[in-house]
Design a protein around this nucleic acid. Structure first.
Lengths: 201, 201
DNA sequence: GTCTATACCTAGATAGAC
DNA sequence: GTCTATCTAGGTATAGAC
């Protein structure tokens, strides 16, 4: 599942990968067919042969980036360890913080949210991620790691939001510090729940 | 302080306001001088008479939007009530969730973060906001509302990040629900700290 | 499949008349 | 102060040759 394999020729693959990079760096409005062609080393004819145009190419690129983001998150959340440790690993895993999220960043673009086919991978990614984190938290609660009162769905939503908002704070500040401060702050709040579940003897 | 008054003529004011609206709706790359002029009801000549060009106009608009965001947040955080209640009011105040944040949304734009004069108002706004929220939390801690172990700075960063990330989740989903789920989830985590400070007898 | 030529529109700005 | 030309570059796409 979450396959990132691609059908089609090598040129088509390079076009999609170039589009993924440019969407990440410049967003949808900031990405031109010309720039895509140059980065992919392909001509106009190739691009319009394989894809119907910029929106078509963007849809393929966004779907692939979304699948990759889900794969990367799942790789961390499926590891061994306590729920708290897996959440911590997710919050603090190596991230190119100042680049932001390949998927979440696109939500700022009005042309993306206006196109159902472009927005769908974003919605699916965050719905899946919130569910995946809620499952991890539920495992922890069932194992006595957290108090029974932990709102797993709400906490999961807060975790995802802190990551996405952390990118905003870091990019605004021009340095990654605020991302980590927000993540650490959230973890500390979660630990208060863990402390309640297993009070110091 | 945080004055949003503007110097200059009526035309200059309309140009700045039109730019503020367009930056909010379409971002920096998505906002053209032509669109600004049309929305402001001004001609080319007027715009280039009052401002040096698109970057100059954008700097004025971003500074003003940042000041307005700080004013609005301060109005909520300076109200009467407990710290917990003021944080809740900040998280749940009326927001046009699907429009996102006038200031934070610009952090996604590479041309904004690359220009120190454009990025500075973003950095100042979030630095101020985190400090203001940390002060509110500190008041609550001093008053016994939270346990002494509350990390006020980290929690403040998490609150701001949840709001900014909540916008991302809501815009991705196409509906405001995820914003409020994340905000409620964070509040519930904070309440665990309040419960520890004043355990049920 | 890939190339080049062509087309039309917009971005962003300057010059000079009024 | 505001207007109307005018300009160069790029965005986005189609047509048709190879």
């Amino acid at each position: 599942m979450y396959s990132t394999c691609m059908s089609g020729t090598d040129t088509a693959r390079r076009l999609v990968e170039a589009t993924q990079e440019l969407l990440w760096e410049r967003g949808y409005v900031g990405t031109s067919p010309r720039a895509i062609q140059q980065r992919a080393g392909a001509g106009q004819g190739s691009m319009y042969h394989h894809f119907g145009g910029k929106p078509d190419l963007a849809r393929a690129a966004v779907r692939r980036s979304a699948a990759q983001v889900r794969e990367a998150a799942d790789a961390v959340l499926a590891r061994e360890g306590s729920a708290r440790e897996r959440v911590r690993a997710y919050l603090e895993r190596e991230r190119e913080v100042l680049r932001g999220c390949r998927v979440g960043g696109l939500a700022q673009d009005p042309d993306v949210v206006a196109d159902p086919e472009l927005r769908a991978p974003l919605a699916e990614t965050f719905t899946w991620l919130r569910g995946r984190l809620a499952d991890v938290l539920e495992e922890g609660r069932a194992g006595g790691e957290f108090g029974p009162g932990l709102d797993t769905a709400g906490t999961a939503a807060a975790i995802v939001a802190v990551v996405q908002g952390g990118y905003v704070l870091a990019r605004s500040a021009g340095e990654p510090g605020p991302f980590h401060e927000a993540a650490d702050g959230l973890l500390a709040l979660l630990d208060a729940h863990a402390a309640r579940a297993t009070p110091a003897s």
